[in-house]
Design a protein around this nucleic acid. Structure first.
Lengths: 341, 341
DNA sequence: TTATTGTCTGAAACCGGTTTCAGGAAACAC
DNA sequence: GTGTTTCCTGAAACCGGTTTCAGACAATAA
């Protein structure tokens, strides 16, 4: 019968170090913390040696208890399998590490109840700050949390919650996409998005799209949500009598995958019959047909800046809520390489 | 000037609840824990109401301190941007949640020093168990850790560390791939792998490949590592005078991406000039050419079983180290749809 | 009736750290 | 030589919980 709890209990503790070095716990604590300056060289050396000899490692849980600083940052992610989320998360983690923080990631799988539970969980672990990339229902809980710790929204806005926000400049992205499509002489554009689902960035993108395309005289637009009838819907779009060359505009990477699969299903000759531009730049875009034109988001940077926002707040910054909007980068590939007229 | 630390300190504590309900801390603790049976109905009701009224949430850090149970599981991932790791992680997380545990993921970015730091970190947070998907250098630290808590290796073996292991049945996977290629009458197979890098599963796969292909009389094999000269190397392979139809066998998803990009670079007509089968099944495989044939790993299940292994150990199981090998599933697509002769 | 058992409860010690506070020793001023 | 100041140190309280232990009380047995 193994007994890990006994093993755990046998770990070297601060008291062990103190006794071994013949000093008090307080001195050891000072050595561990930032107060080393308070100690005489002689004592510091003794402690240092004892720590090395015993292989002592301070217990962060215990530290966090009294100190209130756990050096833990929480991140709530709606869908951990979405490449965008992964990339942002990687950025956050990098920044965390650079500043001595650790990241606890909770995946809600787009489930409201799980969001609630994870929120409670993170709170109970005394995280110091929270990065949110979910729908942010449970407004009351978020509000409460926001009083306890700084909070940054990534790629989402939550109604009535005035936290910092980091994400894409959606109007600018739409503008860039439409400009590119127009230059390439596409005239009839179908924006394909995942179901809105209350996701603010999706709503924003579609809104911007509709507004901007109506302002371009020679272009026409429509919007479609992914779903079981996607292939049919695309077929219909392609069949309607022309007002000009057609293109699809996928509002994110997941939609791009769904579209490309659907186009293949209906036997559409990609990029001859229809143009395609997609938000996000996934690693397989170059591989499909002659490549999918992308508007890449600076995901790593978004993640890093999200953490830095948090850090500023933790250090006492109390400016009004900030919004950081990043510009996408156009990466042209074969899927929009129609010649300008 | 905001003051989150003050806010944090103002959280409702167990003492608040106790006073509000007119009982002792001990009783509240019993209510919170599993000892509710010890309490009289009257007291339990009073506590329950006070908790609801004050919105009390127990502090997990403090609980973990005395109890030794943090309900935290750690996971060490070599590369969080590898789809395989993500999928496994998702499985682990699902299983964790089902059993009331939470997951702390640390990404080492394939860096040994980061592995060491993260290991120390996880330990200092009193995690109860560890899932390792890294190179596992720092054998000494892992050994030490293994005495304190159960440990499961995923897709890796670490020399001399006799922990539980969960992963793919590599010989069987190779066997299935070669059998399939042979049936489709490919004769000359190049296995493409990421640099070995000490990763046991890569070494195992290559080893199995070399052994098995030498046993098939009519087939010939070679091995290639991805890298800057990949395109050239593939060109060379394709140019060598034939012993028969050629195929590539990518040892994982990352290699598959690299290969497909390289083939495109050298203008190779995928799947007419050369067959392709890849381990792992990524969501874009169907989109490339006529689709890439895959050997899918049951990643979710691998993750879940890894956690369950841990759980068994935590509950006192002390059998010898176990190895769980999963079988892959063949998903045939256009890239090997050469007619049998 | 008294002795015994069992059930519920709270005081206090404890987990492993941090922090306050008071005091001793050395350094400085007068 | 005394009076201050400064520097370093340890005892003890504290963080927010859990757990042990002993006592109060009711219920049962003798």
């Amino acid at each position: 019968m193994n007994d890990f709890s006994a093993a755990q209990r046998s770990r070297v503790t601060m008291l062990d170090v103190a006794e071994h070095a013949g000093v008090s716990k307080a001195s050891v604590s000072r050595f561990i913390g930032d107060d080393r300056a308070l100690l005489s060289d002689a004592i510091a050396r003794r402690i240092e040696q004892s720590i090395a000899e015993l292989g002592y490692r301070p217990n962060q849980m215990a530290r966090g208890l009294k100190r209130g600083r756990t050096r833990l940052i929480g991140m709530l992610v709606a869908d951990i399998r979405n490449p965008y989320s992964i990339a942002v998360m990687h950025g956050v983690e990098t920044a965390c590490r650079r500043h001595g923080y650790s990241l606890v990631v909770c995946n809600t799988d787009r489930d409201d109840e799980q969001e609630r539970q994870h929120l409670a969980l993170l709170r109970s672990y005394n995280i110091e700050g929270l990065i949110v990339n979910t729908l942010g229902h449970h407004r009351d809980e978020l509000d409460e949390l926001k009083r306890e710790m700084p909070l940054v929204l990534v790629d989402r806005k939550v109604d009535g919650l005035d936290g910092d926000m980091v994400g894409l400049n959606n109007p600018q992205a739409i503008e860039m996409a439409l400009e590119h499509l127009q230059q390439r002489s596409y005239r009839d554009v179908l924006m394909v998005t995942e179901p809105y689902d209350g996701t603010s960035s999706r709503i924003e993108r579609v809104g911007s799209f509709q507004k901007q395309i109506s302002q371009r005289e020679d272009m026409r637009g429509a919007v479609l949500e992914t779903g079981s009838s996607l292939a049919n819907d695309l077929q219909t779009f392609l069949n309607t009598s022309d007002s000009g060359p057609k293109a699809l505009f996928c509002a994110n990477g997941v939609a791009a995958l769904a579209c490309t699969l659907a186009l293949r299903e209906i036997g559409c000759q990609l990029f001859e019959d229809v143009g395609l531009i997609a938000l996000d730049d996934l690693d397989w875009y170059p591989l499909v047909g002659s490549g999918i034109t992308a508007l890449a988001q600076p995901t790593e940077e978004i993640g890093e800046r999200a953490f830095e926002c948090l850090l500023k707040r933790l250090r006492g910054d109390d400016e009004v809520a900030r919004t950081l909007d990043f510009a996408p980068v156009l990466i042209e590939r074969g899927s929009t390489r129609r010649q300008a007229e």
